[in-house]
């Protein structure tokens, strides 16, 4: 599809406008989705940690640790939660979900209950860890790790959908623009053709039927065509300067 040179800059303008819209909305979306999702995951995980902490008191004090393990196994099935571990007040691990074992980074780290901790675990990835005291810390604490890549994946999906939509709008917009530009450029091309025909033909020659149509147009192009016709019939240049308006009205 040939784009009229006159409108090529406009096309570039449209392209950059779409690009600007796409990039700016994506950046804003990434920021807000990241903020929103991370905060939501943290909140949910804190709630889960608190739920486990509340349910753990009786199990730790009165029952077998297999019940505690069974409890955290149910929660670790929730999407986004990667690991759970419970330590007692002596910092002994009572239950956890790690395979093939508790990572060194966690074994060696200082316990910071109530804070949000970011962890990079070798061979596992990046995690955000939240925690909750069990019986105000007198029994121990529950720690829940959320996979950061899960949040990133959710963001990627959200942004991916958005970019996909913008891309569709962009391409539809581009094709629509080309069509509209060509539609708008058609009379100008006809005018150009007419001007070229006028320049080639003798003054007395009758114009071709296609050229006649442009002379009947009731718009700026028609006015210009009639002016060109007038100019072509005027042999004295001085007359042109004297009364061009009269020529247009002929």
């Amino acid at each position: 599809m040939k784009i009229t040179r006159l409108f090529q800059r406009t096309m570039f303008g449209i392209f950059f406008l779409f690009l600007l819209i796409g990039v700016s909305t994506s950046v804003v979306s990434i920021y807000s989705v990241d903020l929103h999702l991370t905060s939501e995951y943290e909140e949910n995980s804190r709630d889960i940690a608190k739920t486990i902490a509340d349910a753990s008191v009786d199990i730790i004090l009165n029952r077998d640790l297999s019940s505690l393990q069974s409890l955290i196994d149910q929660f670790v099935e929730i999407q986004g939660i990667s690991y759970i571990y419970i330590v007692n007040d002596s910092d002994e691990y009572l239950a956890h979900t790690f395979v093939p074992g508790i990572p060194e980074e966690i074994l060696e780290s200082e316990r910071r209950v109530g804070e949000t901790v970011t962890r990079n675990l070798a061979g596992m990835g990046d995690f955000v860890e939240v925690s909750s005291y069990i019986l105000a810390g007198h029994v121990g604490s529950v720690h829940i790790g959320m996979d950061v890549s899960h949040v990133a994946l959710a963001i990627q999906q959200a942004i991916g959908n958005q970019i996909y939509l913008i891309a569709i709008i962009f391409f539809v917009g581009i094709f629509a623009s080309i069509w509209f530009v060509n539609f708008a450029a058609k009379p100008i091309n006809s005018l150009l053709d007419y001007a070229v025909t006028l320049a080639k033909q003798e003054a007395e020659e009758e114009p071709e039927s296609s050229s006649k149509r442009i002379l009947t147009r009731n718009d700026e192009v028609g006015h210009l065509a009639r002016l060109f016709q007038y100019f072509s019939t005027v042999t004295d240049p001085d007359k042109l300067e004297d009364n061009p308006k009269a020529a247009e009205n002929e």
């Binding site: 077998d64 640790l65 297999s66 019940s67 505690l68 393990q69 956890h96 979900t97 508790i102």
Partner: peptide, 26 residues
């Protein structure tokens, strides 16, 4: 890594405690 494993783990841990010992690894 489930309730069965934890049950046995707790059993070994408790038995070692009787000898004032701990699990050396897991």
């Amino acid at each position: 890594a489930d309730a069965y494993g934890r049950s046995g783990w707790a059993g070994v841990r408790a038995a070692l405690k009787e000898y004032d010992k701990k699990l050396v690894g897991e």
